[in-house]
């Protein structure tokens, strides 16, 4: 009968299926973009110094920032914040120190992943410097103090009075995975870390 028409329809529909397969993959960058814009999943981003230069310090508002640490089971390190919490004025540059120690007799590389609650505060939590921008390598038994420098944006929604910043340290040694680490461009971070 109209075999030609059928083949044409089928080819078009097959293209739709292939496009939808691609769309599944496109959801990955789309989701990341959505998270960047809205802070959807509490991921924080690196801020540029210029971004915070013109921030006005709001002296009549105090926001409590809590720090909490996790070490993933696969990483035999000790990791803690030297301060559990600080109260900061929005717009004010603050530095907080963390202590990390390698408990083994091997050199190990780890990566800290930050997360902020509530997630709608994530976009207003600006980090200028952070040990989470790069991977950290610790020699056997090495202990290291690491700093985070941040500003809570003065545009933070008024109802938020407490922010929790959590870091989870993961082991990057076992099968170093490539390709998808976008948030921590190692080379760029090394240039800026001074």
């Amino acid at each position: 009968m109209n075999e030609q028409t059928n083949k044409k329809t089928a080819t078009r529909l097959l293209l739709v299926a292939v496009a939808m397969f691609g769309f599944g993959y496109a959801l990955v960058p789309l989701y990341d973009l959505l998270c960047d814009v809205t802070g959807l999943n509490g991921k924080t981003q690196r801020a540029d110094v210029s971004e915070i230069k013109n921030q006005k310090i709001i002296l009549d508002r105090l926001v409590k920032v809590e720090f909490t640490t996790m070490v993933n089971t696969n990483l035999p390190w000790k990791f803690k914040a030297l301060q559990n919490k600080v109260s900061v004025h929005p717009g004010e540059l603050t530095t907080v120190k963390f202590l990390v120690r390698n408990m083994t007799d091997m050199a190990i590389t780890g990566q800290a992943i930050p997360s902020v609650a509530p997630s709608k505060a994530a976009n207003h939590f600006k980090k200028i410097e952070c040990f989470c921008f790069t991977q950290q390598t610790l020699q056997p038994g090495e202990e290291k103090e690491m700093a985070v420098q941040f500003v809570v944006d003065s545009k933070l929604a008024p109802e938020i009075d407490t922010i929790t910043l959590a870091y989870t340290f993961f082991n990057s040694n076992k099968n170093i995975k490539t390709g998808l680490i976008k948030k921590q461009p190692v080379a760029v971070a090394a240039n800026n870390s001074k």
């Binding site: 599944g24 959801l27 989701y31 995975k177 390709g179 998808l180």
Partner: peptide, 20 residues
């Protein structure tokens, strides 16, 4: 194969899988 779409350790997000 070493990708980390859903692994927080590599910048991924397990919740992304749930969305997809």
């Amino acid at each position: 194969f070493g990708t980390q779409f859903f692994d927080a350790a590599g910048g991924g997000d397990p919740v992304l899988f749930q969305h997809i």
